[in-house]
């Protein structure tokens, strides 16, 4: 075997070994609110929705770095979420949210929020039809 081949193999083997070793630490899972409750203190991703029946608590004048709201998931899980940063502007209009953080007792301590918003035309035919009806009524 040539020297370059040996170096190639060693480097690639090292990379794979490194990834295998670190993988368990680096990877986390998508969880439901119920399964997240079982994994107290573990960093996970929650896929949920904003609970619109409850108030969103955010008062930037008092504290711009405290946001609290409630989230529900498709399996009926329900949790309070606390996020120590500014409220993402589209939170109210979001249709799905990915919450990254840890379950801390009954409260989900969120480090990062990803919002999936219905774009105006693409995702939601029902909403679009409503929009069309409005258009007609406007005239």
């Amino acid at each position: 075997m040539k020297r370059t081949h040996i170096i190639a193999l060693v480097l690639i083997a090292a990379a794979i070994a490194y990834m295998l070793v670190t993988m368990s630490k680096d990877l986390t899972t998508y969880d439901t609110i119920a399964s997240a409750r079982q994994k107290q203190g573990q960093y996970i991703h929650l896929i949920a929705k904003l609970d619109r029946s409850k108030q969103i608590e955010y008062n930037p004048v008092e504290n711009p770095n405290y946001l609290a709201f409630y989230a529900v998931d498709s399996l009926g899980g329900h949790t309070k979420v606390v996020y120590h940063s500014a409220k993402p502007p589209e939170l109210e209009t979001s249709e799905r949210i990915v919450l990254k953080g840890k379950m801390n007792g009954e409260v989900f301590d969120c480090k990062e929020i990803l919002l999936k918003c219905p774009s105006k035309y693409k995702d939601d035919p029902a909403h679009q039809e409503k929009d069309l009806e409005h258009k007609m009524q406007d005239y």
């Binding site: 990834m19 630490k25 680096d26 990877l27 986390t28 991703h45 480090k111």
Partner: peptide, 21 residues
């Protein structure tokens, strides 16, 4: 590529993995 492809790997292997904290 490996970490970027996690959603693809999830699709192929039916897993629920995501990049960590």
């Amino acid at each position: 590529t490996f970490y970027t492809s996690l959603p693809v790997l999830n699709k192929i292997f039916g897993t629920q993995k995501a990049i960590g904290e």
